[in-house]
């Protein structure tokens, strides 16, 4: 059962799209080690940068929103990965020491 907040994310994706916004959906597809949000967690991003939901404890959302805005432009889905061993760790790493893989797709 998706909890209420996950349903709200899907409702927002539908409504924003219907209002004519560009919309992208990010989904946690795999986690290793400790990671705050399980596979299936969603973050939905609107073309003005507004977002709802979460894919981590707030550690990587900023970077995912940036990529989501890019995905809206290209119309192509992509897979992102974040971890402390990643070079990006200095900017957007996961303090918990886990790794998370995220699928970002445009809502069409």
């Amino acid at each position: 059962m998706p909890d209420q907040s996950e349903i709200e994310v899907l409702v927002a994706a539908r409504d924003w799209k219907a209002e004519g916004h560009g919309v992208a959906l990010a989904t946690v597809i795999k986690t290793w080690g400790s990671s705050p949000r399980p596979a299936g967690s969603h973050l939905v991003v609107r073309d003005d940068g507004f977002f709802l939901g979460s894919v981590s404890g707030g550690c990587v959302e900023g970077a995912v929103v940036d990529d989501a805005l890019g995905v809206m432009k290209t119309g192509l889905s992509k897979v992102l990965e974040f971890s402390v061993t990643n070079e990006q760790a200095w900017e957007v790493g996961l303090a918990c020491g886990g790794t998370v893989r995220i699928f970002v797709e445009p809502v069409q």
Binding site: P2, L10, V11, A13, R14, K17, E105, P106, V107, Q108
Partner: peptide, 14 residues
């Protein structure tokens, strides 16, 4: 994801 797919998922949940 297609908007229709989101619509169908929400309808199935409902």
């Amino acid at each position: 994801m297609k908007a229709e797919t989101i619509e169908t998922v929400l309808a199935e949940i409902e």
